[in-house]
Design a protein around this nucleic acid. Structure first.
Length: 881
RNA sequence: GCCCGGGUGGCGGAACAGGUAGACGUAACGGACUUAAAAUCCGUUGGCCGGCAACGGCCGUGCCGGUUCGAGUCCGGCCCCGGGCACCA
């Protein structure tokens, strides 16, 4: 066997072998368990980045691990090929998005192949291909049939200079990215998918997703945001103003009503009152994101409208306020400044009355008040100049209702029920459940996306494209220039015949949100060659996905849309499952150092970490950094996600070329557990390479020492037994780390420890070498999912003719793991004071005696009374004095 | 602003059900090999204090407080960093 490790030779040979022996093809099989391992498909941005490498390495480990357990595995790959970056590239370089996208796919496919992932490439899908997106259109039409798609106006960012719709990403500090013009909010007609019709099911089904991280389920539950409350009507001259509230118990504390600027009543008021009109106009300025709306200064104007309180008939003013969202509930709220923090701040600002209707239980009655004097219990008293947390409490231990007539003394819940009941009798209140979740607006005023299959006819209105005319094919030769959607100027695309009346009509030029493409791509991998149906029986074989892996940044939107889309398909009888992803692993981001300089013009120039030299101080901490080019200092911006804008990305290709795929894969897995962020480190990569070289050398030395006799466990001496025990402990640990915990870093560490122990041993006796033979074979199999190329070669050198990809996962031998004596830690008052070795099956009494007899323990208990002895079997003894 | 995570040596991380804090790797330092360097191999390395030494003691997991025989791990409050907030994907 060759003495030194040649990564590129290993990798080429192994990849050719897998390919030529057909080991990467997945086939439907009647017998045995299937295992569908799916990684989120990449956007073809041009080059693979480290986040992709991390994602697909994790997926490949699980795929290969399951394969070694005898499962019939599928690991496919595809391209999320529609989207904004292709249009941006077109604006920059004048290249058609289609051309740019297909070139990128070709390059990135080569990169992925060079990393040696066990992907079945025969199933590759690109979402920009008509044979894929025709089924987006087909399902859109089915949803239209069922009333799950509808048209209404929605808000977009409008650049008044370019006369174009901007993505949130293209709005920087309220201005258009290319023009610098102040962005406005504008209303446009758009298509919506009725995800809210599934809100309850999407929420309750989260409980059944045992294989999903708790935090993702919490985020989704909060996103859906189901709340039960009361819809209350406030009568006025022109009708009834409806508000939704979860705090009907505070109804008697309402001192005004607040409505969104887009509320119909606000529009009516604006028509009469210039001040209201000016404010409504002001609200249209700036971005439309929730973060912007939530952080802006709270402002409002009186609408000049008054309503009647439904219980007291009191006259209350209506305000137009920028903190009320039209999209939630009725777009109107009853303001209870005493018990809602936003209302409190608003009321303080505009000197609106604040009426307390909940009292802290500590000072509730006059007797209690005298018992808890104000100066000593200030925090429990109401103060209409200072907000305190308990004002908004619903807990009956904290607050009770006051100043509310017949409801006085009730808890919040009692008052909610009683008030809702009374309102219902008056016809001014209804129990209602409201969701924060909004319907999914899928229209994009952009070119590079899936065309929405609708035809606008002057006579017939909006007419769906007939199924026989699908797909509506997107022309691939247009080049956007930043001034709106080029489709809208493409007469060849727009002009068509109305399928209903046969007269000339115009095609819809909006395209679909790319989240539509990614909501079901994982089904199409199972049947991409079917040109007559969206899905077929093979989908019900492979799906649901057994393991889905992708970035935590997709925890809400992509995963929620996919869960919705799957349910729609289920209800159309297309698939038999409701949840597409049984187990979910959300991987952390890949970070690197950020270095920059401020330019004279006030801008920032970022420098790549490999253009920079680090200067450590005497303690090894980073003291400063200089640019290689001019040796002058640069500023350090900390660790941040690798990105083009921060110029801190590392090109995986350069690393694969330099070290080989196995080294890059090993580093990715070893540097951090998958769910955590991963900090890039070149010296860590070198460490990974060193380990592979040491492993190669160790196996080469062993193999080159000649043939090995067979292992006889009964004939081993104590040292050989100990080494063999470590082999089987390691098998057990790695199996658990990969199979249950997904902590590949600790699995690798355990194998490193085993290799350290093996290379320390110079036992050349026949049985000593037999133990090593077993150990090296085990290591090869244990590492195989992570660094498959080197393992392919080592496996052959260790005497196996068949590919390591067909080998079975090793089993830990329980007999080899048995210990006769174990070491226990002895503490005195919780502090470590010594150790004792006892028989593995020693009873409590003898363990206690051995611990107390220990001299180092004696020193600390001498002259004191032992009050208690805690014995934790197999772990420790704690003597309490 | 709201929702969800995270914070442990010079650095990445380990400690899985409340039980030995710092496995494994990296960096640094010392040594071996070498004409020399690289590579490789061996050793040391959380801080402070005592001791010639073997060794021993105290402190230590972002900050403050609590529960427990025992807290990195559980509870309450705070600080900082990251992800998401519906048109980036």
């Amino acid at each position: 066997m060759q003495e030194s490790y040649d990564a590129h030779l290993c990798e080429q040979t192994a990849q050719q072998r897998w390919e030529s022996e057909g080991l990467l093809r997945a086939r439907e099989q009647a017998e045995g368990d299937k295992y569908y391992c799916l990684c989120m498909l990449p956007y073809p941005s041009g080059r693979l980045h480290m986040g992709h490498v991390r994602n697909y390495t994790i997926g490949d480990v699980l795929t290969r691990f399951q394969r070694m357990h005898g499962r019939n595995v599928l690991q496919p790959m595809g391209w999320d090929a529609f989207g904004l970056p292709a249009e941006n590239a077109a604006i920059r370089n004048g290249v058609a998005p289609a051309r740019w996208t297909y070139d990128n796919i070709a390059y990135m496919r080569r990169q992925l192949r060079s990393l040696g992932f066990a992907i079945d490439w025969s199933r590759e899908v690109a979402t920009c291909r008509p044979e894929y997106y025709r089924w987006n259109q087909w399902l859109f039409l089915r949803m239209l049939d069922r009333g799950l798609v509808y048209r209404k106006t929605g808000t977009v960012n409008w650049d008044p200079v370019d006369q174009t719709v901007l993505a949130n990403e293209q709005v920087i500090d309220g201005r258009g990215w290319r023009t610098g013009a102040t962005v406005e909010r504008r209303e446009l007609p758009m298509y919506y998918m009725k995800i809210t019709a599934y809100a309850d099911e999407l929420l309750t089904a989260l409980d059944g997703l045992a294989g999903w991280p708790e935090r993702v389920k919490t985020m989704q539950a909060n996103w859906i945001g189901r709340s039960e409350g009361v819809e209350i009507g406030f009568p006025h001259d022109g009708g009834v103003l409806k508000v939704f509230t979860t705090r009907a118990d505070t109804l008697l504390g309402a001192t005004y009503l607040a409505i969104a600027a887009e509320h119909p009543l606000a529009r009516q008021a604006a028509a009469r009152d210039a001040r209201v009109a000016a404010f409504v106009e002001e609200c249209r300025q700036g971005g439309a994101t929730e973060a912007e709306l939530a952080t802006q200064e709270k402002k409002g104007v009186p609408a000049g409208v008054f309503v009647r309180h439904p219980l007291t008939d009191e006259k209350l003013p209506v305000w137009v306020a920028n903190y009320v969202l039209m999209a939630y509930g009725e777009g109107a709220v009853m303001a209870v400044p005493a018990h809602d923090q936003r209302d409190f701040e608003f009321a303080r600002k505009y000197q609106l009355p604040i009426k307390q209707v909940l009292e802290n239980t500590l000072v509730y009655t006059p007797e209690l008040r005298s018992k808890f004097p104000r100066d000593q219990y200030e925090a429990c008293y109401f103060d209409n100049t200072l907000w305190k947390e308990w004002y908004a409490s619903k807990s009956q231990d904290k607050v009770l209702v006051i100043h509310s007539g017949k409801y006085n003394g009730m808890s919040s819940q009692e008052a909610i029920d009683a008030i809702a009941n009374d309102l219902k009798k008056k016809g001014l209140g209804e129990q209602r459940t409201v969701c924060r979740l909004r319907d999914w607006g899928i229209s994009r005023q952009r070119y590079w996306g899936c065309p929405i299959p609708i035809i606008h006819c002057d006579a017939c209105g909006d007419v769906p494209v007939p199924d026989k005319d699908l797909p509506v094919v997107l022309p691939e030769d247009l080049v956007p220039d930043g001034s709106g959607n080029p489709l809208a100027k493409c007469e060849a695309f727009i002009r068509c015949i109305c399928p209903r009346c046969g007269k000339p009509a115009r095609r819809e030029t909006d395209t679909m949100d790319t989240f539509v493409d990614s909501s079901w791509y994982y089904m199409r991998y199972a049947c991409r060659d079917n040109s007559t149906a969206m899905v077929d029986r093979r989908v019900n074989y492979w799906l649901p996905v057994d393991q889905y892996i992708g970035g935590i940044e997709h925890a809400i939107l992509h995963l929620l849309y996919s869960r919705f889309w799957t349910r729609v398909m289920r209800d159309l009888g297309l698939v038999k499952f409701a949840e597409p992803f049984t187990n979910l692993l959300t991987q952390g981001m890949v970070l690197n150092h950020i270095f920059f300089r401020k330019t004279a013009a006030g801008g920032i120039t970022y420098y790549s970490p490999d253009e920079v030299v680090l200067r450590p101080d005497e303690r090894g901490q980073l003291a400063g950094a200089t640019l290689k080019a001019d040796a002058r200092p640069v500023e350090y911006g900390g660790m941040g996600t690798m990105s083009k804008s921060k110029n801190n990305g590392v090109d995986p290709q350069a690393l694969v070329d330099k070290y080989g795929a196995d080294t890059v894969r090993l580093f990715m897995l070893f540097a951090a557990p998958p769910e955590q962020t991963l900090e890039w480190s070149e010296s860590g990569v070198e460490g990974a390479q060193r380990f592979l070289k040491r492993l190669w050398k160790a196996v080469a030395d062993h193999v080159n020492a000649g043939p090995v006799t067979s292992l006889e466990p009964a004939a081993l001496d104590a040292l050989q037994r100990a080494l063999r025990r470590q082999v089987h402990e390691t098998i057990a640990k790695v199996s658990d780390d990969i199979g249950r915990r997904y902590t590949f870093n600790t699995a690798i560490a355990a194998v490193m420890e085993l290799l350290n122990a093996l290379t320390r041993s110079d036992d050349a006796t026949p049985q000593g070498r037999a133990v090593k033979q077993e150990a090296y074979a085990a290591i090869t199999l244990l590492l195989c999912p992570m660094v498959p190329h080197i393992c392919e070669t080592l496996w052959r050198e260790l005497g196996h003719a068949e590919s390591v990809m067909t080998a079975r996962w090793p089993l830990a031998d329980a007999a080899a793991r048995v210990r006769e004596r174990i070491e226990l830690v002895v503490q005195v008052n919780g502090k470590l004071r010594g150790r004792v070795a006892v028989a593995a099956d020693a009873d409590r009494e003898s363990v206690e005696n051995a611990a107390l007899a220990e001299p180092s323990v004696q020193r600390f208990i001498e002259g004191r009374t032992v009050r208690k002895v805690v014995v934790v079997p197999g772990k420790l003894v704690n003597v309490v004095v």
